[in-house]
Each structure stands twice: as C-alpha cells, then as structure tokens.
Design a binder for these strands. Structure first.
Length: 637
DNA sequence: TTTAGGG
DNA sequence: CCCTAAA
C-alpha cells in the first residue's frame, strides 16, 4: 500500500476516511469583509466609509484641546469633501509655533474618485484649498512607529493624546483605503544622522497614536510640512511644492454600479488600506527629491456625516489640501543642499562596506480634505488640520521601498540584491509611508461638537508639530543596508519561536513593516512582542490585507508533519495540531501554503522563489500529497 | 464554520 | 493572501 510506502503506517496514521471532517470550530477571521457595502454604493460612499474610519481614530485620540477641555468637547465636524477643483487656493501655513488648532484632515482616498470628482467646491467660501502647512513637526515615532506629534504651544505637555482633543473631531469613516503618508521626515541622511533633532521643547509631545501613546521617542525631527495639493498622481515633482490643482482627475470610476466593480473596489480599498491604510490613500511615496505622488484620501462627506449630521449641519467649507510635506528642510541641516531626497552615492567607496547612501528629503502626504464652517476660527481650522495629521500618524507607519516604481517586498533581500548598490544610481528609489493602523470609526462621531468647538477660539498653542523621526528612517540612514527596518529585528522570529515549536529558520525579517505591524502576540510571550509595537489593535480595518508573512522553514516542517499525519483535507485539524499557537496562520493559510508547497515541489529549483525550502521537505510534500490524494479517491469510491 | 478552489 | 461557493 501506499501507506507503507510512505511510511505513514508506522506513524499510525489512519486513513482518512473523511478528510473533510471539520474539527474544531474555531473561526479565524472572517473572510468577508466588505459585505456591508451596498451595491448601490458608489465609490464615493466607499471612500466616505473609509474616511470615516480614519476619522474615528482621530476622535478617539483626540481629545481635549489643550486649551480648554471644555472646548475640547465641542466638536466641530469637519468633513472633507471632495471638491476637486479647488485649486489650492490658500495655503494655510501653520507656523511652527503658533498656537494652533489642529485641523483634522481627511485623507483622501486615492481611490478614486471621490472627492475629486466633484468639482465643485462649495462655497466658494471654502477656502482652503490647499493648505500648506509648514510647521515644524515633531513626530515621534513610537516604538511602533507611530508618530507622536507634539504641540508645542500648548502648555501642556500634553499628554499625548490630549493635544488635540479639543479639536474637532473628524469623523472618519473610511479610511481604510488609503494609506496616509505623511511626510514626516525631512530628510534622512543616510548617514544616519538625523538631522536636527528637536527636542521636544516646550511642546509636549503628543503621540499620535493614541493607544500607544506612550511611546515617545526620543529623537524628533522637525520638519516642515507643506501641503500641496496634488492629486494622486501628482507626479512627483521634486519640489513638491507645487500645489496642483486637483481636479477630478483622480477619480476614476465614480460610480461603480456593478458588482464586479464594487468588488474590485473593495478589494482595492482593502489593499490600499493595508498598505496605506490609514490614510486611505494609496501609499505615498516618498521620494527624495522626486515627488511621488501623494495619495489622497478623500472622505466623502456623505457617510461621514451621517451621524454627525445630527446637529448642526453646518455649512462646512471644504478644503482640500494636499500636502506634501517636505519635511523640514530645515532639518536637513546636513544634508541640505541637495534637492533630491535620495541619492545614491558611492561614497562607499570608502570602503569599508559598500554603503548606499540615501537621503530622504521629504515625504509626501496625501491630500487631506477638511470641511469646516465658515464661521469657524482659524484656530479651529488649525486644530482640525492637526487632528487630521495626528490621526494619520497615529496609525503607525509602514515604510515601503519602491525601486523603479516596483514595490520591493522581500524584506530579506539585501539592498544589493534588490539592485540598490552603492555603485548604481539610485534615482529610482521611492519610499512609501503607509499608515498602518486601523481603527474603527466611531460611527457617528462627533461632528457637531466639533463645530462648537470651532467656535470657541481655542487657540492653543499647539503651535508646532514636530515630528519625530521614525526609527526606520533613521536606520535607513545609518545603515545603508536596510533602510527600512528599524525594529525589525526579529520580533517576528521571536514570536515564532515562542509559539512555535518549530524553529524558525533564519528569516530575518527585517522589514520594517513587520516590525511595525502588529503581531498578535501569543499571550504568553507578550514580552517578545513588545518589540513590535503595533498598533494593530484589534480590528484592523476592514479592508486591510494581512501582512505578508512568509512561512519559515520551521513552519513548513510543522505543516508537512501535520499533513502527513492528518491528510490534506483537514486543515482545521492541521491548524490545531501544528499551528494552534500561531495565531496568524489560519487553516486557510495552511491549506494555501500546502498548495504552494506542492507546486514548489513540482517545479525546478531554479524556478522557485523565496526562501528555499529544503528538498527533503518538498519530497515529503509530494509524497504526502500523493498518498492523501489517493486516500481521498478511495474514500470517494 | 470549514473545505476547496480560483484569483 | 484574498474571496467565495458549497457543504
């Protein structure tokens, strides 16, 4: 019998008579995420939804304004609208110190259409088409990578969250889709030195992420953020400064009537969210000099307002902002000079190691749309902006690397392997900052209050926003080797080791993203996890795509062993047997992995990608696959 | 909820 | 990995 041949008999495997018996019922994650959407929904709605989610974050986090708590409570609603056309009329500059309010912005979704399409601006009043914000921001990046913003002015040092609270809340709903990119840093020098760090002076830092809040990082960078309006496309201007008018261009399909489209959209959203997430927009790229396109998020007012509507439906003005942030150019102290954000240099010649020198001068931020009533104060507007910015940052960031437009996802690959060598020209490298976090939007949210709040003049001295530099970036500078992964370290591995009996192969997950990503720690090893701060928080947003976590050799080994024993039709059992403690591997994942293993085993080694799986395991895969396939057939008969 | 497969 | 039809 086959069994014999395989040696299964020795193990006492039983023949699976019923391969498909489900064992336990543990569910994993639900698969269906988007169902909510109505068919009818148009893209706008979707966007709105996303935006709402994003906003929600803000709400949570934001809280009290420094100035007065009371005020804080009031909220204004800010909505973003999609008004496209609006050229960036005004720029609002936030001055560093000025006290200010925070403004919440809504990210625009890149997705499409939404906002952009609509071209009308509303009231002319509106006004802020584009905001240019210049501020010094300190962002902190929590360990997680989330950024904290500090507001200086306010007296307080606020605890992190507080800073804004007062601000109007923005309801965000959908944010998912887009990642928000913030420009956070100004420049990163490869050398690793962060440009000037600003200490948080007066300002207190407020971590964006509300949850984590605690993190404060040490180094802060200051940067100037400019928002320019760009569309998603904006190509990049290196200068970034140009505000572009946004027209509806970005939008593509406005209305998706079909199912298919919707689906697509949804998935795109999801993806976007994942990647960018918070922002909603697609990730932005950060390019050094070149601008990349900033993504925009749009929040659609419709949904958002739902709740809000409640009270006052104020008239909001819409603003569109796009921003690009060029982070503090000032900061660049050292670097200054070059316009490019990134440069590859050969400096390495020096020797030692070949280091790739990269400079990230600025990051682009997606467009933000804010709606505020005409009678709102400037302070409130500022606050709203701040809010938005904070919310964006709260989520935690993920850094992505694009080489010639292609996203390099293999975190284990060395720069050199990826084509980023000291001796090459690196004019095609882009970095993306994506917001990781997802939160649920509080639904209705606060809009009205915000309004009130607007009224008040609270101007708090938030004046400056400082952005701390995220570690990753810093790292980048330093070691050319892997720009992106600061924390990386092995948090994942650690986790694994803990949970999984199997040893993880050496995988070095360097990817920053991983580091950032929340990993659900097993209860037991929390400590290990700590390293990875993520904000994952509970639910990720709906749309988020899970982070890619390649199977390690150890996992493959465990999978193969389990399948050998249980067969190929009992994934739930396999999960329980070998991956019970590994939360992020669902039985569907195991099934999928098995599928790929079978495929991998059947192709030539040269065609295989990723970390090589020992041939011995692949042989077992084929054997087990053959054996169990036969068993299933017999069972059928 | 699981399986099983296509995408 | 995601998404879903079936079971």
């Amino acid at each position: 019998m086959v069994r014999k041949r395989l040696g299964y008999s020795s193990r006492g495997h039983r023949i699976p008579t019923m391969p498909r018996v489900p064992n336990s019922a543990r569910g994993k994650r639900s698969t269906r995420r988007k169902k909510d959407e109505n068919d009818d929904m148009c893209a706008m709605d979707l966007l709105a939804t996303v935006a709402g989610k994003l906003l929600a974050d803000q709400d949570n986090s934001s809280s009290v304004p420094n100035t007065s708590a009371a005020k804080a409570k009031k909220r204004k609603s800010v909505k973003e609208e999609h008004f496209d056309e609006i050229p960036p009329l005004k720029n609002v500059a936030m001055e560093k110190d000025v006290g200010s309010g925070s403004v919440s912005a809504f990210p625009r979704q890149a997705k499409n259409c939404l906002a952009e399409n609509s071209s009308t601006r509303n009231g002319a009043d509106t006004v802020l088409e584009s905001l240019t914000v210049k501020s010094n921001m300190l962002a902190k990046i929590p360990e997680c990578g989330s950024y904290g913003i500090h507001h200086a002015g306010s007296s307080s040092s606020a605890e992190p969250e507080q800073v804004h609270q007062a601000e109007p809340k923005v309801s965000r709903r959908q944010a998912d889709g887009h990642p928000v990119a913030y420009g956070i840093f100004n420049s990163v020098d490869v050398d690793g030195k962060p440009p000037a760090l600003v200490s948080s002076d007066s300002s207190s830092c407020v971590p964006l992420s509300s949850h984590d809040k605690e993190h404060q990082t040490s180094s802060l960078y200051r940067g100037v953020v400019q928002y320019t309006a760009d569309r998603e496309d904006d190509e990049n201007s290196s200068g970034c400064t140009h505000p572009s008018t946004i027209e509806s261009k970005g939008c593509k399909p406005q209305y998706l009537g079909n199912h298919r489209i919707r689906k697509l959209l949804a998935s795109k959203v999801r993806k976007a969210a994942r990647n960018k997430i918070c922002g909603g927009i697609p990730s932005k790229k950060i390019c050094g000099g070149l601008s990349k396109k900033g993504s925009k998020l749009n929040l659609c007012g419709k949904k958002m307002s739902t709740t809000h509507q409640k009270v006052q439906r104020m008239i909001f003005k819409k603003k569109k902002l796009t921003h690009r942030t060029s982070f503090a150019k000032e900061m660049l102290t050292e670097a200054s000079g070059t316009s490019f954000a990134m440069e590859g240099q050969n400096k390495s010649c020096e020797a030692e190691n070949y280091h790739v020198k990269l400079r990230i001068k600025s990051f682009n931020i997606p467009e933000l749309f804010i709606k505020v009533p005409e009678n709102a104060t400037i302070g409130s507007l500022k606050r709203a902006v701040m809010d938005v910015v904070n919310s964006i940052m709260e989520g935690g960031l993920r850094v992505g690397v694009l080489l010639q437009g292609k996203d390099i996802q293999d975190d284990n690959k060395t720069l050199c392997q990826a084509g980023i060598c000291h001796d090459k020209k690196l004019n095609n490298i882009d970095f993306t900052l994506e917001c990781e976090r997802e939160r649920e939007p509080p639904s209705g949210v606060i809009i009205q209050e915000q309004m009130d709040f607007l009224t008040t003049d609270m101007v708090e001295p938030l004046a400056r926003m400082k952005c701390e530099e995220p570690f990753p970036e810093a790292d980048v500078g330093d070691d050319s080797q892997q720009p992106r992964a600061p924390y990386r370290s092995r948090s994942l591995s650690d986790l694994y080791s803990v949970h999984c009996p199997v040893q993880m192969a050496s995988q070095d997950t360097t990817a920053s993203s991983q580091a950032i990503v929340p990993v659900s720690p097993a209860p037991s090893d929390v400590g290990a996890l700590a390293i990875v701060p993520l904000c994952k928080s509970k639910g990720s947003e709906v749309g988020q795509r899970r982070m890619r976590r390649p199977f390690t050799v150890g996992e493959v080994e465990a999978l193969v062993g389990a399948v050998e024993q249980l067969g190929t039709g009992r994934w739930r059992a396999v999960k329980t047997l070998a991956f019970d403690s590994i939360d992020h591997r669902t039985y569907v994942d195991l099934k999928d992995k098995w599928k790929t293993l079978v495929h991998t085993a059947s192709i030539s080694p040269q065609q295989r990608r990723g970390q090589p799986v020992p041939q011995e395991l692949l042989d077992r895969v084929l054997l087990a696959q053959a054996y169990w396939s036969q068993q299933q057939q017999q069972a059928r008969l």
